[in-house]
């Protein structure tokens, strides 16, 4: 083993200078207990900052739209381009963020697209297409899509059940639109609501205990 005369210690490993005081060591080197691990740098921090910054830019660009008039003659096409690109980017980031949990990603997607559509409709003069068509269609599709996905991917019941339930509950929201008479063409909302009611009934019959177990776990106080 090598020796440092300044510190009076023996040194294990391939050191030629004392790791404590940098004095040259004397004697034969003995194998050290540590492997030599090359430096590794993680870009996680940088990526996270970039993602947050881009979300901020998108949100600001959305907010700025409020300053322009609702008249399509104003910035009509440009507005659609900005909203389209912005929402696409939000969906991408959201999908990356929830990539390890498809069920969670689906719920987030429904909420995100629903909100963006309503806002878009509002900005372009509130024709009601978002509530009448976009939201019910997205909700109904998500209920079906998730039911298929969890079977195809064989996701464990406990992992997806709460998110599946959430998509169903979101599917009931168009019924509220119907009840409040917010929609001019009631058919999409009615179909979505009916579908969700059926799935909900099946859910409670077949998966009631699992639901309660998962809820008790996640909402534990």
């Amino acid at each position: 083993m090598r020796h440092c005369s300044a510190c009076g210690v023996d040194v294990e490993g391939p050191w030629t200078r004392c790791p404590l005081c940098a004095t040259a060591l004397t004697g034969q080197a003995a194998p050290g207990p540590f492997p030599v691990v090359p430096l590794r740098f993680s870009r996680r921090r940088v990526l996270r900052m970039l993602a947050l910054a881009s979300i901020a830019v998108v949100l600001v660009s959305f907010a700025v739209q409020l300053l322009f008039g609702r008249d399509p003659a104003g910035i009509g096409v440009l507005r659609s381009v900005i909203l389209g690109v912005g929402s696409m980017w939000l969906v991408v980031l959201m999908a990356v963020g929830t990539r390890r949990n498809v069920a969670k990603g689906t719920v987030y997607l429904v909420v995100l697209t629903g909100l963006v559509c309503v806002y878009w409709d509002y900005l372009t003069g509130w024709h009601g297409w978002s509530l009448a068509y976009a939201v019910p269609i997205v909700c109904a599709c998500s209920v079906i899509a998730l039911a298929v996905t969890v079977r195809v991917m064989r996701i464990e019941v406990g992992e997806h059940i709460l998110y599946s339930a959430l998509t169903v509950v979101l599917g009931l929201v168009p019924l509220v639109f119907l009840a409040l008479d917010w929609v001019r063409s009631p058919l999409p909302s009615a179909i979505c609501g009916a579908l969700s009611c059926v799935v909900l009934a099946l859910f409670l019959l077949a998966r009631g205990p699992e639901m309660r177990h998962e809820l008790a776990k996640r909402l534990h106080l």
Binding site: C7, V9, V11, G13, P14, W15, T16, P19
Partner: peptide, 27 residues
Amino acid sequence: ARTLTSRGVDVTVAAAQVTEDELKESR
């Protein structure tokens, strides 16, 4: 370490390479 060695304790040191220079030298 010096506090202990000056009081007659036999100390052995093992250290992991941390800086670029240390890693270069160990290779």
